[in-house]
Amino acid sequence: MGALLVLIFVAVICLCAPLYANDWAHVNAFSSNINGRFFIDGHWRSLLQANTQGLGLGVSPVGPTWHLNNYFLGADSQGRDVFARLLYGGRDSLLIGTTSALICVLLATISGLAAGYFGGVIDWLVSRLLDITWAFPVYLLAISLSVILVTSGFSVGPVHIQAGSLLLPIIIIALIYVPYVARPLRGIVMTLKEREFIQAAIGSGASDWRILRKEILPNVAPSIIVFFPLMVAFNMLTESALSFLGVGVQPPNASWGTIINDGLDLLYSRPWVAMAPGLMIVITAGALNLLGDGFRDAFDPKAKLRGSI
């Protein structure tokens, strides 16, 4: 329950990002503010401060002020409020995590059910496709796809996704983890199919669609529910890794991963820029994993902690 509360809290504060940025802190989280200034302790100070010691090389953004409405976590190298970006970034991270998990689980259910139930050629085809995706080293697949898609966008027939669209990381991440969920589902369906009640339904001449919908799906649903929060956590971590490698969310959009990436260029001088989004990921993913544990206890106590064995 605590996990759920934490999640709701994170989601709510992230959803309030525009409220915070516009009405409280009065900052624009996406526009550069290089010669910007801010008011603190009775003085106006520059957001980006040139080094004055030694040879005077380098420019550093202002560090955390710990004033909640005034550059709480300081500014990044563009002079943007890190805390506001953290909230906006959370929106994208959560959005990518949940939608890609939804797509992933949906595709996995379809392919797992089809392969497990129909068997034969369909099973062979689906299983080989899953094998290929599975054996392709995850990050390599994601990076290879991203390098191209982020560069040139994606265009097949009427479908056109712009380079830099959030849909790209969502789809890429969803696709690479399909086998992770589909393979155990396929196994569950195969065992289910041998059970009497399914055999009886087949014998009674019910259509495949009806059997899948009425008999099989309700029986795999608990496993799917258990997988879902785990996949959200997993996908958020993957998204952050992709953004770290520069092939995830594209600017000016921000996700926790991209903020970490921005922050790594300031790691030695302003470590909080990278630390804060990392902590947010740990908290959110941790809560999701706890939630997954809770779901397992509630719905499917025998489910494996990790898929695909």
Partner: peptide
Amino acid sequence: ADRLGEIST
């Protein structure tokens, strides 16, 4: 960039 300050000092 974030080592420039340190080196130049």
